[in-house]
Amino acid sequence: MNRDYSYLINTLKEWNFTLTDVQINQLDMFYEMLVEKNKVMNLTAITDFDEVQLKHFADSLSICKVLPSDVNTVCDLGTGAGFPGIPMAIVYPNLQFTLIDSLNKRIKFLEEVVDTLGLKNVTLIHSRAEEAGRNKLYREHFDLVVSRAVANIATLSEYCLPLVKINGYFISFKSGDIKDEIELSGSAITKLGGKMNNPSYFNLPDTDISRSFIIIDKVKNTPKAYPRKAGTPSKEPLK
């Protein structure tokens, strides 16, 4: 391996997290597989190594700043090319991860990644978010659901909160100004059984890239009416 991971290593040290040589090698293998597969399949617009290290790896692993200590099972909903789920599974081998995506081609790619990297703590599911939220195998099953998907927080909450068990958490990765989005989503989160915490704001170190986490506690069961049928949560966000 001849790529320089010092930015990622130093960034995580700043966040009080230490990467092992094995984990760095696994991330590097993932990077190689991502770039190679991206030549024949649209997985990500970001392929330059420094950009991937910053905007995919460091961004995904920034969750170490807010990860609750009482979590054992994690679901990454809408995982796409495997972010944040694969980097998280690499650095948290003691946790069990379920990565869900609606596109089977992406799941097939991630199966290759999991096999090549020897990740024993990852399960991959091909499913739409709405279907997963109604599936008794996954509904209110996870300690933590995370998502880097691009959607407003009311829509994401309708997708994610049905999967979170009582006393669990939904954490949404966000960027930019989210104050208005938070204000508009409060009623929807309450309807879905959630309670909003204060957001966590930060910049990726040595950059002006602003990031934030919206952290929602699951305090009540999600009503059976949610999630609504496929497409509705994004077209008609709850108010």
Rank of each mutant, 00 (worst) to 15 (best):
N2W: 12
Y5D: 09
Y5G: 05
K13F: 14
W15Y: 01
N16E: 08
F17H: 08
L19E: 02
Q26P: 04
L27C: 14
L27P: 15
E32N: 15
E32P: 13
K37P: 07
V40H: 12
N42D: 03
L43V: 03
T44Y: 10
T44S: 06
I46E: 12
D48H: 15
D50Y: 13
V52F: 10
V52P: 00
L54W: 05
K55Y: 00
S60P: 01
L61K: 05
I63Y: 01
L67A: 08
P68W: 07
P68Q: 10
V71K: 13
T73S: 14
V74N: 11
V74S: 10
C75W: 08
C75E: 10
C75I: 14
C75D: 13
G78W: 00
G80L: 02
G80C: 04
G85D: 09
M88E: 08
Y92Q: 09
Y92A: 13
Y92M: 12
P93Q: 13
P93E: 07
P93L: 13
L95Q: 03
Q96S: 11
F97G: 11
L99V: 03
D101H: 03
L103M: 11
N104M: 01
K105M: 11
R106W: 01
L110N: 03
D115F: 15
L117W: 13
L117V: 07
G118Q: 03
L124K: 01
A132F: 11
R134G: 10
N135D: 15
K136M: 09
Y138C: 09
R139M: 07
H141L: 07
H141D: 09
F142C: 01
V146M: 06
V146E: 08
S147D: 06
R148K: 11
V150C: 07
A151K: 03
N152P: 07
N152K: 04
A154T: 00
T155F: 05
T155V: 12
L156C: 07
E158N: 04
C160Y: 12
L161M: 08
P162D: 02
L163P: 13
K165F: 00
K165S: 05
N167R: 13
N167P: 08
Y169R: 09
K174S: 03
K174F: 05
S175C: 09
I178E: 01
K179S: 15
E181W: 10
S185P: 02
S185E: 04
G186R: 15
S187R: 14
A188W: 03
T190L: 14
L192H: 00
G193Y: 06
P199F: 12
P199E: 10
S200Q: 15
N203S: 14
L204M: 10
T207H: 06
T207W: 09
I209W: 01
I214L: 11
I215T: 05
I215C: 00
I216C: 09
I216Y: 01
T222Q: 02
K224A: 08
Y226G: 00
P227K: 02
R228G: 00
T232R: 09
P233Q: 01
S234I: 15
P237Q: 08
